[in-house]
């Protein structure tokens, strides 16, 4: 679905007169592969290069060096630009700054309108997209009257209406409260399972990454760690060295293990911890 090979991205810094004064390397030799239908999480602190990476997948940025293929299409090929953007949709962080329409349904229709989809088909797409994120009953509402979580779900619907194969979500929950966050993640989850859309979720909330098929951890423009959530989170010290959290239950398991209890690394749920401790109890008996 997405193939990235030796990607390098340099931002050009400019002095006060606007002359190039140097470059900052935001992405430094990143290669990765995403299979169709996967749920991917990309973790990393602010400035680790994860948002820059996301914009490459949507052809909003172009490689300084290396290549990005979206469904086989090279993002450097200008003639494929609109096909790429339609194949890989994007949801941004700020819910207010990505809704264009003044009515929910009109915003969802914006993408299909740009693609030149016939009017009746737009209506069909709008309806099914709003249904997919559970926002159909709000179709006539003004976006200004929605909560943050609802706005983000409208944004997701706006992307689905373009019938993408992949959706990149760049910290979609960073500005939301816990219930809004849960709604957005469960919407993303169900699109992945039911519509088989590839999801690339960029986040710094570790709990959101637990359900992913594969996790990439970025630091300083490079992929620092990768693997299944269990593999990545079992390396507690490495994660902490990268200024990232691990889920609290993982951390608790890790501390108990260091204290000599027989608990495996990479505990991801509280039930797993309870089972592991129950095993200990029997051996202690």
């Amino acid at each position: 679905m997405i193939k990235i090979s030796k990607l390098i991205h340099d931002y050009i810094q400019r002095d006060e007169e606007g002359n190039p004064a140097g470059t900052v390397r935001a992405i430094d030799d990143v290669s990765l592969n995403v299979e169709p239908g996967q749920f991917i999480a990309i973790l990393g602190h602010n400035g680790s290069g994860k948002s820059t990476l996301a914009k490459h997948i949507n052809a909003l940025l172009f490689p300084t060096e290396g290549t990005v293929w979206v469904n086989g299409m090279d993002t450097k090929d200008q003639s494929l630009l609109w096909d790429i953007r339609q194949t890989a949709g994007m949801v941004f962080q700020n819910p207010d700054n990505q809704i264009i329409g003044q009515v929910v349904e009109e915003d969802v229709g914006f993408g299909p309108e740009n693609m030149g989809v016939p009017t009746e088909k737009i209506w069909e797409r709008v309806e099914e997209s709003l249904k997919a994120v559970g926002m159909l009953e709000y179709r006539k509402k003004s976006p200004n009257r929605l909560s943050g979580g609802q706005k983000q779900r409208v944004s997701i619907a706006g992307v689905i209406a373009m019938h993408p194969k992949c959706i990149v979500m760049d910290e979609p929950t960073a500005m939301l409260d816990p219930s809004g966050r849960a709604d957005v993640i469960s919407a993303a989850r169900s699109l992945n399972i039911e519509e088989n859309i590839t999801i690339i979720l960029i986040t710094h909330f570790m709990e959101e990454a637990i359900q992913a098929d594969h996790v990439f951890v970025m630091d300083n423009g490079k992929i620092a760690m990768q693997g299944s959530p269990r593999e990545v989170f079992s390396r507690v010290e490495e994660m902490q060295a990268l200024n990232l959290d691990v889920p609290q239950v993982t951390l608790l398991g890790h501390i108990l293990r260091k204290e000599g209890l027989d608990i495996p690394e990479g505990i991801l749920t509280k039930e797993e911890l309870a089972e592991a401790l129950a095993g200990n109890k029997e051996s202690l008996l």
């Binding site: 700054n97 990505q98 309108e113």
Partner: peptide, 24 residues
Amino acid sequence: RANDLAMAMEARCYRGGAGRTKMK
């Protein structure tokens, strides 16, 4: 906001009025 919005519009394939259809 204008910057963000421009990027969001581009990501949703906005390229001016040519070839655009209308929902309403």
